[in-house]
Design a protein around this nucleic acid. Structure first.
Length: 466
DNA sequence: TTCTACCAGA
């Protein structure tokens, strides 16, 4: 037993996470070991429970590998006298799922079969989930098919696996086959449709779930349905969800739902409702995401002053902005024509908050400078973006600005740059040829068109969802 | 003490 304690002590030393829990378990282990030095075998049932807890903590941590190491060690030491139970295997399988590595999970799977868990619902369901999480859907389906007994969780685990990997039609097939569906099943399939951009189907399923089946949506259901709501700009849906959230108490206990509501109102065109929802949040619950949601709402509504005020109030409450807050502020500056303020925000972000700009910040900046016709500065920044990060979108933004402000010289330089990065996209040729034609340089314009034809670049017709 | 749904904000 002494070697055990040593081993576990080493594990604990190596990691800081779950420290308290592990220390408690460790203390108990030492205690039990001391109590039972004369007959270690009698301590095994209690020890198994503690080992299981330890394995559980490791499997949930950032280094699930440790749970396998511990298991291996215990198996090697006590394999002859200890029989691991369904808890041990559930935790180990969960650990493999968190690791995202199905080869490890496969080994645990084999061991669990050897120990006789081939028809244990919890262990087998954990396996379905593990294979599903790892994207080995064939294997997940196989385990599912061979299970003599399944429960709701088993079905839902398989459905969410197919949703996760983008196969909504198979998920839907399973959903339709399910003898009884609960809120998790409905949420899973609704989430699948939302993620695939099939918003109308997501909304009609949501309606069917609530109206026809009388199933109460959970907070997860609401979080899943929000993107569908604002993509179809359904203000009425926002109000209904808002009311339901208040009545059911979901708004009171899940700040994420209220924050999404603020965001959804803004995206559906009603900043007034968004602000009202935001102002209803108590000071203690209002967090960074709440503030960023309202700021981004103001930004998209062109209300730069309000965005600035909110930013200031947020700072006064001692909440630190992050990269998304700054992106929203840049967006507000861009829409309000406040170029210098925007540049100042970027400086603050880097110097005072130590946040390095990413490609979206740069994109916003170039868009902002480009709108105001400060093309030289925009080009200078575009050239300064590290190559590893830079993309063709940045240059297309600049090209658009060149087109808007009739700067053909820079347009040609930018075009050159775009061709270097990606010489098959027709839209840029069209844009440049339009710039040249707009300036009366028809011969050059024609030349660009010809190059375009020679390269077989085809401009995809523009599509707008709005 | 075991198995299921979440992208809160660009």
């Amino acid at each position: 037993m002494g070697r055990d304690v040593h081993y576990i002590l080493n594990l604990i030393k190596n990691h800081q996470f779950c420290r308290k829990a592990i220390q408690q378990i460790h203390a108990q282990l030492v205690f039990i070991t001391a109590e039972n030095t004369s007959s270690p075998a009698s301590a095994i049932p209690i020890l198994l429970t503690l080992w299981n807890s330890l394995i559980r903590h490791y499997s949930l941590g950032i280094y699930p590998q440790e749970s396998f190491l511990l298991f291996k060690h215990l198996k090697f030491q006590y394999g002859r006298i200890v029989f691991f139970d369904s808890f041990t295997y559930s935790f180990l399988i969960k650990g493999s799922a968190n690791l995202g590595e199905f080869r490890v999970g496969k080994q645990v799977h084999c061991l669990s079969l050897k120990d006789g868990f081939e028809s244990h619902v919890y262990v087998q369901t954990a396996l379905v989930n593990m294979y599903g999480e790892c994207g080995v859907l064939g294997e997940a389906k196989k385990v599912f098919d061979e299970m003599p007994v399944r429960n709701w969780v088993t079905w839902n685990a398989l459905i969410s696996s197919f949703v996760k990997w983008g196969d909504v039609s198979v998920a839907r097939g399973l959903f339709d086959l399910m003898p009884e569906k609960n809120v998790v099943s409905w949420t899973g399939i609704i989430d699948g449709y939302t993620r695939m951009g099939r918003f109308d189907e997501a909304l009609s399923l949501f309606k069917e779930m609530v109206v026809v089946e009388g199933i109460k949506p959970s907070e997860v259901t609401l979080l899943a349905i929000f993107p569908a709501i604002w993509n179809v700009r359904c203000l009425e849906c926002c109000r209904m969800i808002h009311g339901y959230g208040e009545k059911s108490g979901i708004n009171a206990f899940d700040i994420r739902v209220v924050n999404s509501l603020v965001d959804a109102y803004a995206k559906c065109g009603s900043m007034e409702d968004g602000v009202r929802a935001f102002e209803d949040i108590s000071d203690e619950r209002r967090n960074l995401v709440s503030w960023t949601s309202v700021i981004s709402g103001y930004a998209m509504h062109g209300m730069a002053k309000e965005a600035f005020d909110s930013y200031k109030m947020m700072m006064d409450e001692g909440i630190e902005p992050n990269r998304i807050t700054f992106l929203s502020m840049l967006n507000a500056c861009s829409h309000g024509g406040l170029v210098d303020e925007g540049l100042e925000f970027l400086r603050k972000m880097v110097d005072e908050f130590g946040i390095q700009p990413d490609i979206k910040h740069y994109g916003c900046l170039i868009d902002m400078l480009g709108r105001e016709g400060r093309l030289e500065e925009a080009e200078k920044i575009a050239l300064e973006i590290p190559n590893t990060m830079s993309n063709v979108v940045i240059w297309r933004t600049l090209l658009g600005a060149c087109s808007f402000h009739d700067n053909a010289d820079m347009g040609e330089r930018v075009m050159q740059k775009i061709m270097e990065m990606e010489n098959k996209y027709g839209g840029d040729y069209v844009l440049l040829s339009n710039i040249l034609a707009g300036m009366g340089r028809y011969v050059d314009s024609e030349g660009v068109r010809r190059v375009m034809d020679e390269q077989n670049a085809i401009k995809a017709p523009g599509i707008s969802f709005t």
